[in-house]
Design a protein around this nucleic acid. Structure first.
Lengths: 235, 235
DNA sequence: GAACGAAAGTGATGATTATCAATTTTTGGT
DNA sequence: ACCAAAAATTGATAATCATCACTTTCGTTC
């Protein structure tokens, strides 16, 4: 079952259709000059809020959460980035410290590009800066949506939206035709929907009773995406 | 009483220290070539979500709200822009429709710069695109903050934050030394704090009883910004 | 495959917040 | 200054949500 036509997934996805593809040969070469490929373990922190950025990360494999931790230790997931997306470039561009933290949701392979190389290419390449402008302004619309939903909609709807978005995020790696498995802790689900672990559990039970999904352990399979979209009350 | 040291206001302000100041003469001239200065009445809509952008707006006078209306007609204010700030450029940059709407909070004077002129300068001027990148990535951090607060913090704290931010926004136009008057409908305050009008009223009463502020009609004067920061529980 | 720690799930309860139905006050236009 | 309409305010009530205390299940590791 496809989402197209029933849910505007692009409003929830940064979808940086790879900032680096088809860059001028020279720019690309310079970016990759000192790039370093690293393997990250599940749950490993990539960077923390408040640190100075040393470069940017490009996701080659796996999924990454971007999140903020408030002064009550509560974690809020801002965005889930997947294969092909850039992470950690906002701080470089704004010249500020990291505004949020990033950690892997599973084993990941990341490409690290040092600050100097990235900034140098940026200053020379009109292409790259135009793409980043496009990407950032799209991201703005995604975050605006989130604000509106978090501020105005009840938890049940927010969790429904989170599940719809996650289903897309977990598509990659699932063989065509097979069911998409959402594999994420209840804790992370809660901090994505902006609620508590217990509430997520209770709502998932409701959704199960309404035959919208099935669960086994932490794993979730969406069974009726259309009804879930209805529950989300979004658009 | 200054905020510096007690509240990180820059995390709530786009503060585009005028994107246009000190641009190369030629770029500036081209931007202004067909620019049009218009007066807007209080409450007038500048653009609506979903429309195609025709250009960008630069605020010469007054304050503007950027907001989203969900499919239950509920309005959520994403940001309050003041004198010297740009409005409506995200859609131009992303090549999409307006992701949100904008309306004046009071009588305003706006400078409209047509799409073509803006895009042309953007493609030629490394300066302008670098400044926009910086601005957009800072905006990202502001919106991330909002998400975290809306998703995790109770209404009382959210309203406290809104009031602190508004006090800064309404600084301009207040003679030095005089008290800053926040002048905004309860309805707008509610959609800024992500709650209902009635709740705003009740919380304002609490704040009055706690001698944090005074009100008269719709007008609000913060009397104890330090305590209000404490109430906000932010940082 | 037993055993332990971590994560998921449940239930009771109280706090927070929205909704509805009023009344009172303010504001803008004459 | 007066009037009507709009906005602000209040109170009662119900819905939503967080918290706490606990049990059960899962998933490693030996």
């Amino acid at each position: 079952m496809s989402l197209s036509g029933i849910f505007p997934i692009n409003r929830w996805d940064f979808k940086s259709d790879s900032v680096f593809t088809n860059l001028p040969e020279e720019d690309y070469a310079r970016l990759m000059q000192h790039a370093r490929k690293d393997r990250y373990k599940k749950g490993q922190v990539i960077f923390r809020e408040g640190n100075m950025p040393g470069g940017i990360y490009y996701i080659l494999e796996g999924r990454v959460k971007k999140y903020k931790v408030d002064n009550f230790e509560k974690e809020q997931i801002i965005y889930i980035a997947a294969e092909g997306e850039l992470v950690g470039y906002h701080a470089l561009l704004s010249g500020e410290r990291y505004p949020d933290a990033a950690a892997t949701l599973e084993e990941c392979v990341l490409l690290f590009i040092p600050r100097e190389d990235f900034m140098q290419v940026l200053e020379q390449s009109g292409q790259l800066s135009m793409r980043l402008l496009k990407m950032l302004s799209h991201e703005f619309s995604v975050l605006s949506n989130s604000i509106s939903v978090f501020a105005q909609r009840p938890v049940r709807e927010r969790l429904a939206i989170a599940l719809i978005v996650l289903r897309e995020k977990f598509k990659k790696g699932t063989p065509e035709g097979e069911d998409i498995t959402i594999n994420m802790s209840r804790e992370d689900l809660a901090s994505m929907a902006g609620t508590t672990r217990e509430n997520v559990v209770r709502l998932l039970r409701q959704f199960k009773d309404e035959q919208l999904l099935e669960t086994k352990g932490r794993k979730i399979w969406i069974r009726d995406i259309r009804k879930l979209v209805t529950v989300s009350n979004y658009q």
